[in-house]
Design a binder for these strands. Structure first.
Lengths: 354, 354
DNA sequence: TTGTACGCGTTATCAA
DNA sequence: TTGATAACGCGTACAA
């Protein structure tokens, strides 16, 4: 019983060959090794239960076989799905996946970038922490860090709008929001409220723009009193429900576009708590098509983003970049409207004179 | 502009000291260094934007500052919450968190253990992949691998029943299920169905035992025709709904205990699809208290497990073990019944003669 | 086809 | 208090 794990030296000794030869066999080098020798080494390795030390290997090779995914919160279903996709592809190619919860805090983001540089992470995937504020004090440092990481040869990919410069795959937030709003309009709705995202997160603003554009294109003037502040959380949705409940009856919107599903869930819950009937009293829709969107009552109309697939695509792009192969700098990821029971025609909405 | 990141040699050169001295300053060693020299090194390091190479450091120190969490699927809210807690504590102590999706497949579990051994992961947290079958062919290999990892000095902690030998923190599944079932009984229910978990996953069986025990203790004979097969997923819950719908009216249960929340969500959805009214036609409860449990309609009665806190506790235990400090081998993690709207007294249930 | 010997970036041991 | 050097385990020029 060996207390220490055996090194390649032990394998070489046991096989009666040099370390170089043993290494060539174990590392799957293309270097020629005679079949007999190869066999001996493999047997020795098996008998010793030899496991190569990835740390040493990485140190030597200047690459770690680590891929990190930076998310706001891995317990948020949106990020969880993306991370799952990343891990799938990473694992299939022999990479480990590191999870980094930034809590949308630039300080934490920067701190993680430092650490990932320390570990010589081969790939870093940003998802969903991008803010409009190009003027956050940390931005300069983050940019510098990113550049440094890229110079080292690591690959960076962003899966949502972000101020940094890197290849990206972006869900079509604007298009999805436009289509979804158009759908509401096609149902007859004109007074459509919008629950915003946190502060100046770009994704949320893209959806807001899509919403506005669709209204304008249909000859409806966007009404800013119908903009309710949210923050991508259920709690934010519940607060919006409270505000909605305060509207004078004649000014009430007949539909609400919550800028993500979580918000829509909270909104539905909050409205029902206050005695509203859904969808009779108001149509509601979200964005993201989380697994629960189908399950809630009424089932939620929303915009589908194939999140797991997005994660997979992101990881693939990292791998492609690491192989110095060509890949588009900017890719758009399609979104599609999913029509369900939470949105109904205006004429079926309660309190609407036919 | 340097293309390569500077090493400690560069720092030493620039500061005009030896590598040893530079290292002593940078690594925060307790070794005495004169203030002047220390200053010089720190300035040089700052100017060069020196970042220590964690790989080399780990290789030398024989520890990686990596903590891995093995989960069935990180997109499952249960695991996502636990992983979040792990990451919080890990990050606060300078560790990176690696996510490993085993898909409950022993082969993948084994493969990941190998890789984690390669990387000299300092801590490994198992959560929720434990099965009753001690006879899976891989079990022997997994046991051997685990022992090897522990011999190396790495810490292993399990957060759910698992066949391997390691310190554990176990949610009180049996107690929670017992209490929850007792609550249903106190509402007057006698015909209580149970939707099981996948195959022979121990967690699910613990909950089943709690359910049975509570029935027996109340003088109700458990009826195996009320056991519906599930698999911890929404789809499983939907299937169970189909089976429930087939029951002859007089044999219908008046309440269902779904052995996790996901299953309960699917069950509620499936029943409603078939025209059932909830909770009037049947009381439903789950297990886990996921964030969505409160938001569904009707809000779900369930058993709370402080999952994020469980993850935190697991990571803490890892840290404690790594410092060779005392920590209980077996800890129980409390669970509490959360009463909500999805369960009602028997006499309020439709079709029940008063 | 095989072996020798060095370097990857740190830290620890020893000597000065 | 400081410096030279070995070691961690691996891969690879270069030599044989």
């Amino acid at each position: 019983m060996t207390l220490e794990s055996p090194s390649i030296i032990d394998v070489a000794k046991k096989a009666g060959v040099s370390v170089a030869t043993a290494s060539r066999v174990m590392s799957g080098s293309t270097y020629p090794v005679s079949d007999g020798t190869r066999e001996k080494v493999l047997i020795a390795a098996k008998e010793l239960h030899y496991v190569p030390n990835s740390l040493a290997r990485s140190l030597k090779a200047q690459r770690s076989k680590l891929i990190a995914v930076l998310v706001g919160d891995n317990a948020d279903p949106y990020f969880a799905q993306v991370a799952r996709g990343v891990e799938e592809v990473a694992n299939a190619h022999g990479y480990l996946t590191i999870i980094c919860n930034t809590e949308r805090d630039p300080d934490r983001e920067l701190s993680y970038l430092q650490t990932l540089q320390d570990y010589r992470a081969d790939g870093i995937i940003f998802t969903g922490s991008g803010s409009d504020e190009t003027s956050v004090p940390e931005q300069l440092e983050i940019d510098a860090m990113v550049e440094k990481i890229q110079r080292r040869g690591a690959a960076i990919v962003i899966l949502s709008p972000h101020s940094i410069q890197a290849p990206s795959i972006q869900p079509d937030n604007l298009g999805g929001a436009y289509e979804l709003t158009s759908y509401l309009i096609s149902l007859g709705h004109k007074r459509i409220a919008f629950v915003t995202g946190p502060g100046n997160v770009t994704v949320a603003n893209q959806r807001l723009h899509g919403y506005r554009q669709a209204l304008t294109d249909s000859g409806i003037t966007p009404d800013d009193t119908l903009l309710l502040p949210g923050n991508f959380t259920q709690a934010g949705g519940e607060r919006a429900a409270g505000m909605l409940d305060q509207f004078p009856r004649e000014k009430r919107p007949t539909a609400v576009f919550a800028c993500n599903d979580e918000t829509a869930f909270g909104l539905m819950y909050g409205l029902r708590q206050r005695g509203w009937r859904l969808p009779e009293d108001i149509s509601i829709c979200g964005f993201g098509n989380l697994p629960m969107a189908r399950m809630v009552t009424p089932s939620l109309t929303t915009v589908n983003i194939a999140l797991r697939e997005l994660g997979r695509a992101g990881a693939q792009k990292i791998l492609t970049l690491l192989q110095h192969q060509e890949t588009p700098t900017q890719e758009t990821f399609p979104t599609t409207v999913v029509k369900r029971a939470s949105t109904i025609p205006l004429e079926h909405t309660a309190g609407v004179q036919q």
